[in-house]
């Protein structure tokens, strides 16, 4: 995909239909922060309340990353991984100004602002492809119907990522 780095993609319904369970967003929040909510889900689902067809909204890791360009604390709050080109946020340096969220070229923005009772503690959150998690993308790991993958090679899940008991189940279910 030209113009975009490796990012989360949704497969076609003919391969696997998104069930609208929001497990991907919930687990994204839980694995990053230990809690879950719309403010820390780096992946969101555009729920089809009438069509019952759901669209996954994830950051595309744009090569030109306007979000990064807009950040007043570029290279501190918002940084680019030199090896993978993943655009990610370092919360300690983020001042929660929201400029990145506004600059995202997609609507709705792929960047959420995680609120706090103290306005000073608002933080931007965005998909970092779980770069610090040795298991890789958690949304992919937990999607029950396997309708999520990575754009580059469409790897559904790096091997050995699932807990042993789950792997046994996959074998049993195969």
């Amino acid at each position: 995909m030209e113009g975009y780095g490796n990012h989360i993609v949704q497969y076609s319904p003919e391969y696997s239909l998104c069930a609208g369970c929001e497990t991907c967003s919930i687990m994204c929040g839980l694995t990053h922060d230990g809690f879950t909510g719309p403010g820390n889900a780096r992946i969101r689902i555009n729920l089809g309340t009438r069509s019952l067809m759901h669209e996954v909204l994830a950051c595309q890791q744009c090569d030109d990353h306007p979000c990064y360009e807009a950040c007043p604390k570029k290279d501190a709050a918002m940084r680019i991984d030199p090896d993978t080109n993943i655009v990610y946020i370092v919360e300690d340096d983020c001042i929660g100004c929201g400029k990145c969220a506004k600059a995202c070229k997609f609507t709705p923005s792929r960047i959420q602002i995680r609120k706090n009772k103290s306005r000073k503690l608002w933080k931007a959150v965005k998909c970092d492809l779980c770069r610090e998690n040795p298991e890789g993308p958690q949304c992919v790991k937990y999607c029950i119907v396997r309708c999520l993958g990575l754009s580059d090679d469409s790897v559904m899940l790096p091997e050995g990522v699932m807990p042993a008991y789950a792997q046994e189940q996959e074998v049993a279910n195969a």
Binding site: G29, G34, P163
Partner: peptide
């Protein structure tokens, strides 16, 4: 716009993979 916080993420993970043997497979 707030949050929900379960207490035990390890247990939660265990439940996700074990309650009724989830298929974890494509569903066309």
């Amino acid at each position: 716009t707030g949050v929900i916080a379960p207490a035990d993420l390890e247990k939660l993970d265990f439940l996700r993979w074990n309650m009724n043997n989830p298929g974890m497979k494509p569903s066309p």
